[in-house]
Write a protein that binds this DNA or RNA. Structure first.
Length: 421
DNA sequence: TCTGGGGTCCTAGGACCC
DNA sequence: TCTGGGGTCCTAGGACCC
């Protein structure tokens, strides 16, 4: 049995912890560069504000309804997420962190329906009490069903945040009430196709013959079908620890043209990506650098160059040299750039790196240097020690005009409680 | 004028091996 | 009219997730 714990309006809920005046008000959190809406409070949803909607389109709506606006504060959200996960570890030894705001818990040994209900209820109440984030819990035999359960827990008020789908009657009703587009694994491409094939609800999908679904859709949809019927296809996550690729990319806060400006951004992205690489004790054998011109301009230049490294590495210094080489080969003077990014691939465990007879790099030296760099940045804050290539000017930095303080991770931002004299 | 960022898996087709 | 059989690896593109 799986319990899916899903935070409600997560980013907005994080902002509300430290600013209770936001409760009951419409609140939105914007993407990088304050571009579009990526989280909404229920009040904001009620105003018709859509997920992913560009902020500039909503200016009047924001003003008329006194919507509270926040830039993404991923440091804060990441920290609150970690607190929730560590809290959940008390409730199950078997947790799969699925995303920043969701986790699957295996509930083995909790047998009766009442026991499951009250267990889930405790989780909801305690996370609200101890961390201040509202969550919904859905419990069922498979992850796909648990997803549907948690969705109901969130949407249907009488469930008060907990929905269990255990009897076949409960499951049938839930599936009939679930549009096929809301099923986990059915996206915006497949949903219209299914509709035209006469599949409008999760129930109708579950009644089709599995082998035919495989033929006309894919194995994934066949698995989804099985999961809806209580057959576990997505069991424990067996993927090896660590990412297979690491991407760091940003839209710039302004248009850039000069090579040095773009390279400073790229060097910073490399440093961030390499630090993530080292955190999972891996090394990368390829690096891809891409740059993009302005959007909505007829001649939008897009350039990308991938380099295969002779020996996989986790050294920021080495990687940034390759990145510079790649950038030089795609950079065109006079072009207006709006975005750049770095993708590390060919990721292998650091102690499995295939060495080369003709290697000229002193890997031991790089390794020690990177250890010191990570250590200093851990103690003194990210970016304290960095390559000169990253520069000091940060001309590429994204616009973040509505950023909240890092209440939980920066001493300067800790709330001050004033005594009332 | 202004529209984010970071991942995964599957499949088909080509190149290559014996 | 007839043209083997069985594999692997790699890549690009498409779909999905948050």
């Amino acid at each position: 049995m799986y319990a899916l714990v899903d935070c409600n309006n997560f980013f907005v809920s994080c902002e509300r912890i430290f600013n209770p005046a936001l409760n009951g008000r419409p609140v939105v959190v914007l993407s990088g560069n304050d571009g579009c809406v990526i989280a909404r409070s229920n009040e904001a949803k009620a105003l018709g504000i859509a997920m992913g909607q560009p902020a500039f389109e909503l200016r009047d709506v924001f003003e008329r309804n006194k919507v509270a606006i926040y830039s993404s504060n991923h440091i804060l959200y990441g920290d609150i997420s970690r607190r929730i996960i560590s809290f959940l570890s008390q409730y199950s030894p078997d947790i799969e962190v699925y995303s920043i705001d969701e986790a699957f818990l295996r509930l083995d040994g909790v047998v009766t329906e009442e026991a499951v209900e009250s267990y889930a209820r405790v989780i909801v109440d305690e996370i609200q009490r101890c961390i201040g984030v509202p969550v919904s819990v859905g419990v069922a035999a498979t992850k796909t069903l648990a997803k549907i359960a948690s969705h109901r827990a969130k949407k249907i008020p009488r469930y008060k945040g907990v929905c269990t789908l255990l009897s076949s009657d409960q499951i049938a009703i839930a599936l009939m009430e679930c549009p096929v587009a809301d099923v986990w694994g059915v996206g915006r491409r497949l949903a219209p196709r299914m509709l035209s094939d006469g599949i409008a609800t999760a129930w109708e999908l579950s009644r089709r013959q599995a082998s035919l679904l495989r033929q006309s859709y894919s194995v994934e949809i066949e698995r989804t079908h099985d999961e809806l019927n209580g057959i576990v296809c997505y069991a424990d996550d067996e993927r090896p620890e660590g990412k297979q690729s690491i991407t760091v990319s940003r839209t710039f806060g302004q248009i850039l043209s000069a090579f040095d400006d773009v390279y400073e951004a790229v060097a910073h992205f490399v440093a961030t990506a390499a630090a993530r690489l080292r955190r999972q004790s891996s090394a990368a054998a390829s690096i891809l650098v891409f740059i993009k011109g302005r959007q909505r301009v007829t001649t939008c230049y897009v350039g990308a160059r991938e380099l295969l490294l002779p020996v996989a590495t986790d050294s920021t210094i080495e990687l940034s040299q390759y990145a510079r080489q790649a950038l030089l080969s795609v950079y065109r003077p006079g072009e207006a750039y709006r975005k750049a990014g770095v993708i590390l691939g060919g990721i292998v465990p650091r102690d499995h790196v295939q060495l080369s007879l003709y290697d000229t790099v002193d890997r031991e030296k790089h390794h020690k240097l990177m250890q010191v760099l990570d250590e200093v940045n851990l103690r003194a804050g990210t970016g304290t020690l960095r390559l000169g290539a990253e520069g000091n000017r940060r001309v590429w930095m994204a616009k973040q005009e509505h950023l909240s303080p890092c209440y939980t991770t920066n001493f300067k931002d800790i709330l001050v409680v004033k005594a009332n004299k």
